[in-house]
């Protein structure tokens, strides 16, 4: 005899009304666009000829892998996303997509991205993409983010890997150039995200995320932003004197680096009121332009070299 009268239970399974746009939002399209751009640069600066179909396949797999990471990040962080104004409109907090749906979507995309890159391009790149997704989801999202104020410092490695994956996809091996790109993004991440954390401090405090401004306070964060920028700027210029990238890149890195440093000093000096808020917003916006500018210069340099023989 059954203890529970099953006929008395009204089964009302949830029927999804999520449309394609909700699933695209799970991929974090804006983050994905930066990943595509940096991976494209990693691919084109590789000193080998890559067939356009294989290049497209590599970039597509890296992009889908990044999207899968975004979906898995939203699956795990839906509770804190609901508490922060910046993320409250994401598909899971809005009730458009359930957590199991996001998990299944992310895992499926991650599987296909890694396997396709491994089968069609090479297994070194496939393995590195798998490691990148693992690092972002397990090490950063599940491990570090709610545990330490150094979350985005260590987790920044995941965001810095796409150009390395692309280089490995093109060449099948590693070299100094992609590692320089990795280091530039790695040291760029803390000033960028801590600037965001400074003007979104209330959000992170409400959600209980131990970002540096929440744990150590705004002034300590301003100092850390300045210190990381002091490391970042010469590091970004260094490929020029070391002979890896040419003078055009060096000049752009110097000019943009001067801007980045000036804005970081401004954030360090202005600590009160609307001026402090404006200074952090400016640094945050400029840091995106800074990274885009450095990588765009490398891309344009390759394009210029390719078309120069046709023009002259």
């Amino acid at each position: 005899m059954s203890v529970v009268d099953h006929n008395a239970i009204e089964l009302s399974p949830r029927i999804s009304e999520a449309d394609v746009a909700d699933y695209i939002a799970l991929l974090k399209p804006r983050v994905m666009s930066l990943v595509i751009f940096t991976a494209l640069v990693g691919l084109v600066i590789a000193p080998v000829h890559v067939h356009p179909v294989l290049a497209f396949t590599s970039i597509l797999c890296i992009a889908v892998g990044a999207g899968a990471s975004g979906a898995l990040n939203m699956w795990y962080e839906s509770d804190i996303d609901a508490l922060m104004s910046r993320t409250a409109n994401r598909p899971i907090p809005r009730g458009r997509v359930t957590r199991p749906e996001a998990l299944a979507f992310g895992m499926t995309l991650a599987f296909f991205a890694v396997m396709t890159l491994g089968i069609l391009v090479n297994w070194y790149a496939g393995a590195l993409l798998a490691f990148t997704i693992f690092f972002y989801v397990v090490i950063y999202t599940i491990g570090l983010k709610r545990w330490t104020a150094q979350n985005i410092v260590i987790g920044g490695a995941a965001g810095a890997l796409p150009p390395v994956v692309a280089w490995v996809a093109a060449t099948g091996s590693l070299s100094v150039e992609p590692l320089l790109l990795f280091l530039i993004i790695f040291f760029w991440t803390p000033p960028h995200f801590w600037a965001l954390a400074l003007f979104r401090n209330d959000d992170y405090t409400r959600a209980g995320v131990p970002m540096l401004p929440v744990v150590a306070g705004p002034d300590a964060t301003r100092l850390q932003i300045l210190l990381y920028t002091i490391v970042l700027v010469p590091l970004a210029v260094s490929p020029w004197p070391l002979g890896y990238f040419d003078a055009a890149y060096g000049m752009v890195a110097l000019i943009l680096g001067a801007g980045m440093l000036a804005l970081a000093i401004n954030v360090y000096r202005r600590r009160e009121g609307s001026e402090a808020l404006r200074a952090t917003r400016r640094l945050f916006a400029f840091s995106i332009f800074y990274l885009f500018g450095l990588f765009a210069t490398l891309l344009l340099d390759v394009v210029a070299r390719a078309i120069a023989p046709l023009v002259w």
Binding site: E17, A18, D19, V20, V53, L120
Partner: peptide, 24 residues
């Protein structure tokens, strides 16, 4: 409507995958 949209998106994704494997 949303289920139809999702089904079309999955079909397109599978189509892209087939074309990709063929092209490579």
């Amino acid at each position: 409507k949303s289920r139809r949209q999702r089904s079309i998106a999955i079909a397109l994704a599978l189509g892209v995958l087939v074309v990709l494997f063929f092209a490579v």
